[in-house]
């Protein structure tokens, strides 16, 4: 099963490679990883999407916690309700009127925004859960997709539970 693990870590050089190295050294799956500083500049927040059996996920949580730079960690999938969001930018071929209308219509359905327009291309921005972005890609004609870039998922728990110091 897929899990989203959020963690706060010391904003030190090399912290990212400790996490990435842990996953490769122990053979864990890593589907996406995002990291950026937080409002507290001494801390970075990382979101890792991973998958595995319950035992593996438990080990991943423990091994991450064991890293000296990791201050706090929560498996937001295991911790009940959460919100997951990912950003995708997708560049598609839009070189006929028919295509331009069709793509615009699809983008509207998915609440996407067209950010760039040329005679032959669109760049569309889409935000949502990973599955929604997957669905949009499926909805496009594969031959028309020129480029996609995805941020990897970020997530936060609903309600009053917080990942903070």
């Amino acid at each position: 099963m897929q899990h989203i693990i959020s963690l706060l870590m010391e904003n030190e050089s090399g912290a990212l490679s400790r996490v990435a190295g842990l996953f490769s050294a122990r053979g864990y799956n890593i589907e996406s990883l995002t990291v950026a500083p937080t409002e507290d500049e001494t801390l970075s927040r990382m979101t890792i999407v991973t998958s595995g059996s319950n035992e593996i996920i438990e080990q991943i949580n423990k091994q991450l916690n064991k890293l000296i730079d990791v201050v706090k960690l929560v498996d937001i999938t295991a911790n009940g309700d959460h919100i997951e969001r990912e950003l995708m930018l997708i560049k598609v071929k839009a070189d006929t009127n028919e295509k331009r209308e069709e793509i615009k219509r699809q983008a509207d359905i998915f609440h996407g925004q067209i950010l760039d327009v040329t005679d032959t291309t669109y760049v569309i921005e889409l935000i949502g859960e990973g599955s929604k972005l997957d669905a949009f890609i499926k909805a496009m004609d594969a031959a028309d997709i020129l480029e996609t870039v995805r941020s990897g998922a970020t997530g936060i728990t609903r309600g009053e539970t917080c990942l903070r110091l």
Binding site: E55, E58, Q59, K62, Q63, N65, K66
Partner: peptide, 11 residues
Amino acid sequence: IDPASISKNVQ
């Protein structure tokens, strides 16, 4: 003393 040792190889 290491929580990561628990159930690592054997439940």
